[in-house]
Design a protein around this nucleic acid. Sequence first.
DNA 1: CTGTTAGCGCGTTCAA
DNA 2: TTGAACGCGCTAACAG
Lengths: 331, 331
Amino acid sequence: MFEIAQLAGVSESTVSRALSGSPLVNENTRNRILKIARSANYTVNINARNLRQKRTRTIEVLIPLAEYGRQHMSDPFYLDMLGVLADALSERHYDMLLTKRAPWAKGVETNSIQCGRADGIIIMGQGQDLEALRNFTDLYPQVVVWGGHLREDDYIVVGTDNVAGGKLATEHLMKLGRKRIAFLGDPAEPEIALRQQGYRKAFLDNGIAVDESLIFSAPFDAREARASAEKMLQSGVSFDAIFCASDVIAMSAITTLRNAGLDVPRDVAIVGYDDILIANSFGPSLTTVSQRIQEGGKTMVELLLQRIEGKSVDTTLLPVELVVRESCGAP
Amino acid sequence: MFEIAQLAGVSESTVSRALSGSPLVNENTRNRILKIARSANYTVNINARNLRQKRTRTIEVLIPLAEYGRQHMSDPFYLDMLGVLADALSERHYDMLLTKRAPWAKGVETNSIQCGRADGIIIMGQGQDLEALRNFTDLYPQVVVWGGHLREDDYIVVGTDNVAGGKLATEHLMKLGRKRIAFLGDPAEPEIALRQQGYRKAFLDNGIAVDESLIFSAPFDAREARASAEKMLQSGVSFDAIFCASDVIAMSAITTLRNAGLDVPRDVAIVGYDDILIANSFGPSLTTVSQRIQEGGKTMVELLLQRIEGKSVDTTLLPVELVVRESCGAP
DNA sequence: CTGTTAGCGCGTTCAA
DNA sequence: TTGAACGCGCTAACAG
């Protein structure tokens, strides 16, 4: 920067101001400096700037990525979200640091906020260790979590109204005349448990008793979801519809049912959850409860940046919406 | 750090040395300092360290993520790879910066290497602008590219032997007795063009003329791939097998064929390319040419870090391997 | 509008 | 084995 200053015949401060777009600098001076900087192929060193300004314009995104060792597939939902977050952050001139391990995992010494690597963290999914999450956000409030609205937590949550979504999906199947509607999804994940609550609520609100034999647990992984779907078939329990707790589960279920010679939606109607991009390309295309991934991602970025600026922001529940396509058999 | 030094009754230098694991510090002193630092919840500021050391222990990963605006789905291949890269980098104590836009794209002023944000870049896919890529790597050689081996380029490429892979897949279908083997894939992408070369080579090496009417172009996107598969059907050209240039295309083709009442693999045998994690969960499970995603990702990280250290490393072509599952109809 | 001065927090000399 | 001094490259405060 010193060299640029010399070439332009000004002080380093002026160069700094010109390059950071400060209004406190003459139009001509600025243009001259910009030109020289460009021709010298000069760029401001980001570490020095971060050190000085005590901010990084970087957000960490904590996301459950594929575990190759275990042949575990990551849900495309997260990856659709990643695309949205990348765009939303880039639009605000923020960089994205991608991480798999939670800062409270053992073996992790520090976190990106404390060591000055990021200004805030977006955590995808509450995960299993709710207490660790709460302890962490107590210390570092510059966090937004994607997930289910569990109770009056101190951290900011963004997500859809999972109970309403579960109810919406189930009632849609009821209205289509389905009598034996099953639930497929693993309630270990908080969001899934809420969707199951919505499923139950649909029956209760319509004066129908919930048949517990129709509730099947399936983890979020595609391969195991297929295994679960096969168990459903072998259980001998009859059903003419399934509300699947995610689109991945729905696609697995459809594959399994078809392989067993059943027709979707004729024999079994399917409704998924998420509305991932691929849901519309699958055959049959999925009827699903939209998680408004685009809106959700943008909202998370918006709220997090506001929180970093010190503004007070609130947990946000996005309204749900049913996207009707082929798999439910609606006319 | 000054405070920690005071608490420990030593100088800042000693604290710095203790925390960075320097051998130039007494065992007792180190333990005392570590204890104090931990109890004070102190962490070294990463920006100051980076500034001083002129390195960041951060790698940028440039990856084509989903375009939500255009409803464009990103290939799960990239995302499987992302998981592997995250693990490989984390193992070497490197952080991962995720980016969608190439540094040579218009509107991008600088790049992460020049401004000190990253020590190197992993670029997923050569993309369309081969010249821009070459110009960039001329200036910044700390780059590894995943893709096809095009010619003696100056930048480091890691990838599978796409020609051999295309040949392997096609010959496998020949050996299974298929007579009308089609190709589905968009040769605009360099890797796909190479796979098509392999497809042609399989015919030539077996003394069979290539039937150009069996070569169909399909972009990498799932929805358009389905459209292309439908065009194949409507074209009236008969075929009893398809070599699909990616697993995503293969899954789309299978969906389309099944919707049209055809059986896979009985009526049409399918071989894909990539061996993404979901390939084994799909129904029917995909016979596919493995891209050795795990090995490939680890190799990229390994080579890039060596190159950053100044060692000379070479472009690496991973050997291909056919993973035989259900979709090809092998006994 | 511009220059001077100081310091962000660390790692690395050099000297002891 | 430790401490003192310096400077990485930048921006903010102040003075002009």
